[in-house]
Design a protein around this nucleic acid. Structure first.
Length: 217
DNA sequence: CGACCGATCGTCT
DNA sequence: GACGATCGGTCGA
């Protein structure tokens, strides 16, 4: 069988799929920052979409009160995070929203990164159809719940490896200087006490697709 | 604008 | 039985 095809827009570019050596590093903050500017592609039932990551949050495992794995919680839901990096962690939030995370680090260390916003690259009409949004609405891929709806990701994709063709991340050579990356507290984690103040939310400064709230500069 | 609220259901206590 | 790593609508200033 022929090698799996490269996404159309990446052909001819100096692009490469992110492999396990990218995800299985120790520093979840470093990986989170590195994800800013990378490309997510999904292909479900022949329907293809892609977008560039402009916002993400790190969840630093058992010592992080904001993480589902805080204190070493190991349940049917959180066990995915304890697997080796390079897979998804997708869970249902508020009974409505499917939130997409990338699992990092090695087996037994439940680190994860929540992808919060994308700049659409390909398949925007399909994203608009999936979300019921109108052309020009930047909320189509802004916010973790909106983003998964646009990409077609649901909890049925929990635990899927990020190199199998359904959900993949790429480095297409687009570079993001440190000057353009902001690090601020995470959204919606007031329950986490002082850990709610940690600057674990990274975003591309000035990018219109970044989800609302304190777009400092 | 900002504050508030309902939706909706899996997960954990 | 309570509570979300959210969103979009409404209401009032």
């Amino acid at each position: 069988m022929a090698e799996r095809e490269t996404p159309l827009f990446l052909q001819g570019m100096a692009s490469k799929i992110l492999r396990n050596n990218f995800y299985r590093r120790d520093d979840v903050l470093e990986i989170c920052r590195d994800l800013i500017g990378k490309v997510i592609c999904t292909r479900f039932d022949g329907m293809y979409t892609s977008g560039r990551i402009v916002e993400a949050e790190a969840y630093a495992g058992i010592t992080d009160r904001a993480s589902h794995a805080w204190g070493g919680r190991y349940t049917a839901r959180t066990k995915t995070m304890y697997e080796a990096g390079g897979i998804t962690y997708v869970y249902l939030c508020y009974g409505i929203h499917h939130l997409f995370n990338v699992v990092t680090n090695k087996t037994g260390v439940p680190h994860a990164i929540l992808i919060r916003a994308l700049e659409p690259l390909e398949g925007l009409p399909l994203m608009l159809q999936r979300t019921g949004k109108k052309p020009g609405d930047t909320k189509v891929t802004s916010g973790p719940g909106n983003l998964t709806r646009a990409l077609g990701i649901t909890t049925s994709h929990n635990g899927v490896a990020l190199i199998k063709g359904e959900i993949e991340l790429y480095d297409d050579g687009y570079t993001v200087s440190d000057q353009l990356v902001a690090a601020v507290p995470r959204v919606g984690v007031d329950y986490a006490g002082e850990d709610a103040l940690l600057p674990y939310r990274y975003y591309l400064k000035g990018n219109p697709w970044v989800s609302a709230l304190q777009q400092t500069r």
